[in-house]
Amino acid sequence: MKNILVLCTGNSCRSQMAHGYLKAMQNGKAKIYSAGIETHGLNPGAVAIMKEDGIDISKHTSNNVDEYDGISWDYIITVCDHARENCPYIPSKMAKRIHHNFFDPSKVQGTEEEKHAAFLKARNEIRNFCKGFIEKEFN
């Protein structure tokens, strides 16, 4: 079984959404983990937008990357530039490193409709990325 780490700055939003999709899509072929270089807690907007698509991430926790020391990674996916540039060294000779900087919906200010639209945009981009990743790497 493969080990996949999804890494973001605070492990509250984008990495959590990717974790949810990868877990739902991988059909028992991988263990999915998500972490941040910091921990910011689970973003309620991310939980709500994922629920709209039938994925429950409400029981996820915001974890620091250091908590997973010793795991042999097959894939390390960074989902924001900040995490890619500031991530502590993760020793893994085997890991395939993949980077995609997703738009951060948690930074959007405005009406509830504008915030919802931002989370929807990010969620759909992340879902499409995860689908493509699974198709490429596991089929």
Rank of each mutant, 00 (worst) to 15 (best):
Y21A: 08
T9S: 12
N3A: 12
I71H: 09
I37H: 03
K131N: 12
H116M: 05
T78Y: 05
K23R: 14
A48L: 06
I77Y: 02
G41T: 06
A46Y: 11
F129M: 02
S62N: 08
I4N: 06
M1G: 10
S34A: 10
G54P: 05
N63L: 09
C130T: 12
G41F: 09
L22R: 12
A24G: 01
F103Q: 07
A118M: 11
I77S: 10
M17D: 08
E113F: 08
T9H: 10
I134H: 09
K93R: 09
A83H: 05
K131W: 00
L120H: 09
S72T: 08
G10P: 00
V47I: 13
K51S: 11
D74K: 07
T39D: 05
K96F: 00
E112Y: 01
H99E: 01
L5T: 04
A83N: 03
S72P: 00
N63D: 14
V65D: 02
F138E: 12
H60E: 15
N128C: 00
R123L: 12
F102K: 08
C8M: 04
V6E: 05
N63R: 15
A35F: 11
D104Q: 07
Y75Q: 13
A18F: 06
N11F: 05
E135V: 03
N3Y: 03
E135T: 10
A48C: 01
E125N: 07
A24V: 04
G132Y: 04
P88S: 08
V108D: 15
D53F: 09
M17I: 08
K2Q: 14
V108R: 12
Y33E: 07
E38P: 00
S92M: 04
I98T: 12
D56P: 04
S34Y: 02
K115P: 00
F133L: 13
M50D: 07
I57K: 00
K31M: 11
Y68K: 07
G10Y: 01
A117Y: 01
S62R: 06
E125Q: 15
G45Q: 08
K121D: 13
L120W: 08
K115E: 14
Q16G: 05
N139E: 13
F138T: 07
Q26F: 04
G36I: 05
Y75R: 13
G41C: 05
E114R: 06
G36A: 08
L22W: 07
I77A: 08
K93E: 09
N27K: 15
